[in-house]
Design a protein around this nucleic acid. Structure first.
Lengths: 343, 343
DNA sequence: CTGTTAGCGCTTTCAG
DNA sequence: CTGAAAGCGCTAACAG
């Protein structure tokens, strides 16, 4: 069923029907009503390709992420989708699997106007973003989230690592912890240094002097990390709390505590930046600082639609800093209500 | 840059350029070469909407799932995407959030030819599938996976619950367990009854007579379930292994064992159907039977493309029964290499 | 082997 | 207020 058939059915011209359907003021209310009802009767729906071709609008946005099977990114997509749906937009998903080549090829594929805008979290391999800037030059706005390139001044949505670490540390202090260890990650990553700074400043504010033996510099070598954590927890001046910079280090801490019989949370408190919803469910005693994935996706979508709607190539540096959320669980009640797994 | 401009640039007609680009045998190799190189030079890409309008093909498929932020479904999408990419197809994602109304509305939206085919896992509320059958009648093939309607004889991909439970139980028997409890779920669900039957038959085959006190009928009430499990584990004839029908019951079992100081896996073995990759990572001693989400998605995509390519409205009942995978971990080594979380 | 032309289904200007 | 007609960019039948 297309416009031609529908107009024949109604005894009207194609153009009148088209106008009636788009609620043009040129058409009388009476005919509009007739058209609408016939359209409903025949279940008429405009062919999107014809409309898109005419309008040079695709009513579609793309989300490019490293991996969809990742709680953080899938929640983010959720946020994007909820906003897109409100705008009557469709969402195309592309995964890069952390491969720069793939990311470049996806970006190239999107140069043809298939989408009106792009939301992206770049791959680990991505150090320059020319392929994405090319999209912007073509008039296709791009909004970055979470994984952003520090050198790129496009609109982006990230969380406030510094503040989150600061507040997290204050939380531990309030709980009476005085010897708080910090498990740091790669010094090259901004997230790592920002989080460490938040921790340090909170201690400073509380008048606790820096104890470098409590700051453990970890890296990508999991085994080595575990040894470092083991050493920390068995040392003379062992901490009463551990603040892990990334989730993986918190998990390692749990495993070591189990091995050497340190009780969590009785003898030690564990706090961590953590995106994996399930970590805090299966380890109910973990206090986690979680990036608001859903909100980040939603925020990114809102930014993107602002750019699309204004149809302006916005060169302003729009940077959204969302706060992370502190998730504190009652450690006596294991709550697994967050499960959403298929049976 | 479009065909018109490109052909002007080359001093050829639009149609010749079009044919050259689609590698038509009507065009000489020499001109093809010229055209290709100019196209590359100007970074020409066909406008997908114009092509789609002409060809009545969208080169796009839709995946409709209850929730994207779910390990099982996101892995399945991964599988779909990998196959689609090979076919040069794009993937549109729609979530129903377990809402039938949403599912119906998405299905209606897809009636306009925006996609060439649909892969779906139906919502919990969905008891009839008219809205999806309507798509099939329009010539848009639909493949179901995991959550399928038993009354619908369309192509589908599901796992073999019976066989998986049978093999899982045999595994426990081989490990020397003799008193294996089974935590059953809603009697109304096929998955539940099929899994129970697999368990029973494995015991029967091993010559172990049925002990109904070891079969615990659980349901949607988490608190009540926990009480039942507690009773089971503190009873006189307590089991040496627990086979949970769904993951949630396994998690509850862990929590109770911790409370009443039963050692896992030393004093009791726990096995469960489980899709949450992280469950077996954070509970390394859990032996899980996992649905091959990725493979299911991939298989569904393959089925769908067979239907699309043949362009046949296939009424044959194509049902794919994939085996589930038994994941056995070395319980002494906590392996968390599966983490893929964003930092 | 190359070019002309019609038309996919829709929107929109312009004329009535 | 309604209709005729052009054209979005591409493909393919047909003519040369």
């Amino acid at each position: 069923m297309n416009l031609k058939q529908l107009s024949k059915e109604l005894g009207l011209s194609i153009s009148s029907v088209s106008k009636a359907l788009s609620n043009s003021p040129e058409i009388s209310e009476a005919t509009k009503k007739k058209v609408l009802s016939k359209a409903k009767e025949f279940n008429y729906q405009a062919n999107p390709f014809a409309s898109n071709l005419r309008n040079k609008k695709s009513k579609t946005i793309a989300v490019i992420i490293p991996e969809i099977a990742n709680n953080f990114f899938s929640l983010a997509i959720n946020g994007v989708e909820s906003y897109a749906q409100r705008k009557n937009y469709h969402v195309l998903i592309y995964q890069t699997h952390e491969d720069l080549q793939k990311e470049v090829s996806v970006a190239k594929h999107l140069m043809n106007g298939r989408v009106d805008g792009v939301i992206i979290s770049i791959s680990r391999q991505t150090s320059n973003t020319e392929h994405l800037e090319a999209l912007e030059h073509k008039g296709i706005p791009v909004v970055y989230f979470d994984r952003v390139n520090e050198n790129n001044h496009s609109p982006k949505v990230i969380t406030n690592d510094y503040e989150s670490a600061f507040l997290g540390t204050e939380h531990l202090l309030q709980k009476g912890c005085t010897k708080i260890a910090f498990l740091s990650f790669s010094k090259l990553l901004f997230i790592s240094t920002n989080r460490l700074k938040g921790y340090s400043d909170a201690l400073k504010k509380a008048g606790i002097k820096k104890d470098t033996s409590l700051i453990v510099q970890c890296d990508n070598d999991k085994i080595a990390n575990k040894k470092l954590i083991h050493k920390l927890l068995t040392s003379a001046g062992k901490p009463d709390a551990v603040f892990a910079c990334v989730e993986e280090l918190a998990i390692s801490t749990y495993e070591i505590c189990e091995e050497i019989d340190i009780k969590i949370p009785k003898n030690i408190k564990v706090m961590s930046f953590s995106n994996l919803q399930t970590a805090s469910i299966l380890r109910p005693s973990l206090t986690s600082i979680t990036q608001p994935a859903y909100e980040m996706g939603r925020e990114a979508a809102e930014m993107l639609f602002n750019l699309i709607d204004k149809n302006v190539h916005n060169n302003l540096q729009a940077e959204m800093l969302l706060p992370s959320t502190l998730i504190i669980r009652n450690s006596t009640k294991g709550n697994s209500s967050g499960f959403a797994g298929s049976l």
